[in-house]
């Protein structure tokens, strides 16, 4: 069942697919940014308010046809926070010779609300937005020791892609 709680901005694609009895996936609004900052702080242990405000400006307000910042929000009263999870994505093209492709740049789910399909719904909603934007592949990058994210993306049938990430310490 699709629910709509607000009208999307005029330059935005329709709201993402919505799932769950007590939460729904929608595009981020300015009032959600503080919750995103708090959730990220709880999950990573690092507070990055400037980063997330900047991400909101870039991914939540501009070029919304190719940039997506979605949040899973609680519906109705409850003890859980308003924002139960978020995902950020962008359609990028021709970096490193890559054809247009949807990049999953960030994903987080409230620890108390895990195993309810929120991450799956966020990824599914982002995939739908990528398809609307005209791409048929999505990609992400996960730290090798981040087993939680690796297990999740693998369970969504994501496989190793054709690129290898390389890096070097700068003297």
């Amino acid at each position: 069942m699709r629910k709509r709680r607000h009208s999307p901005p005029p330059d935005s694609p329709p709201e993402a697919a919505l799932q769950g009895d007590s939460w729904q996936v929608v595009r981020i609004r300015a009032g959600d940014v503080a919750d995103v900052i708090r959730l990220d702080h709880r999950v990573t242990g690092l507070a990055k308010p400037d980063y997330w405000r900047d991400m909101f400006e870039r991914y939540g307000r501009r070029r919304l046809g190719e940039r997506m910042f979605l949040v899973a929000k609680t519906v109705g009263p409850g003890t859980l926070p308003d924002v139960l999870g978020f995902i950020v994505g962008e359609v990028r093209a021709w970096e490193f010779g890559s054809a247009p492709c949807g990049w999953v740049l960030a994903l987080s789910v409230e620890p108390q609300a895990r195993l309810r399909g929120i991450g799956k719904a966020l990824l599914g909603a982002l995939a739908a937005e990528f398809k609307k934007a005209g791409v048929n592949k999505m990609r992400t990058m996960v730290a090798r020791d981040n087993q939680l994210h690796l297990l999740f993306f693998r369970s969504e049938e994501m496989m190793a892609g054709p690129y290898i990430e390389l890096e070097k310490e700068l003297d």
Partner: peptide, 15 residues
């Protein structure tokens, strides 16, 4: 190790 440690029996089933 990262690859084998990220594929569960349920995920392999999907594959």
């Amino acid at each position: 190790r990262a690859t084998l440690g990220s594929i569960t029996i349920a995920t392999l089933h999907k594959l």
